[in-house]
Amino acid sequence: MSTVVLLLFTGLGLGALYFLVAAGLSLIYGLMGVLNFAHGAFLTLGAFTGWEIARRTGSDNWGTFLLSLLVGAAAGAAFAAFTEFVLIRRLYQRHIEQVLITVGLSLAAVALFDGIWGTDPVFIQGPAWFKETTEILGARVPNDRFVCIIAAVLVLLALVFFLKNTRYGMIIRAGVENRSMVTALGIDVRKAFTLVFTIGGAAAGLGGVLASHYFGYVSPMLGGSLLIFAFIVTVIGGLGSLTGAAIAAVAVAVLQQFANFYLGGTGDFVVVLALALVLLFRPSGLLGRTS
């Protein structure tokens, strides 16, 4: 029993990270049709800036941790806004070229991170409480899992509130459904583009700081490896669906953890298998638009 509980919470923690990456990816794709390969770079930048904050202000306290979350999210948001405004916008509606731009950006950014911070992982320490455990049903669950889960839930709630209750949220929801009709109502949908990129970048940057604590290190490859699972999550969840991304993130991560433990480290294959099954029986994903 205790193993199951431990795996469940570890899976939920990882699912929280997947969600933080996938939320932005899914909204960006849903609204703009852009597959953003640079999203991993937003995350990595968030992680490194968070690490720099921790390094400079002494890592072992909550103030530093909260500050690093804030700065990491801001760094991710700024990078993302820059990407949309300077690069993506010029290629409006040319989806393949937009993907190519983000591929090039991701190559260049990761190489630059290599140059600045080195290719080896740098280790990070958070508040001492992170490494302690809390006992739940006999399982000793590391506390950093809870931090990831709580943060992701808060982000999800904030996003849902924003989408439901603000004019821009409404524009984004409408745009995911039918972008050209939004412009045909006299709305400049490009502002919403910059906004979803910024929000997605902030979530990824936040995810980067949390991921660095979850894994215990930062490396230039961090974003890339999470990004691939986030892609899988967005496809399984249904492109453009935030709720779908949340459900799929948890499902994928928990499945991965259990398969890794009980099926001899096959977590990644089981996830790809799940993707294949979803594509065979429900090509538009769990909550995707049926077309």
Partner: peptide
């Protein structure tokens, strides 16, 4: 730092070509 990373230069070049 940027010049000692071949992929940085290639990635940037690639972006410029696409644009």
């Amino acid at each position: 730092v940027p010049l000692s990373e071949p992929l940085f230069i290639l990635g940037t070049l690639f972006i410029l070509v696409v644009l």
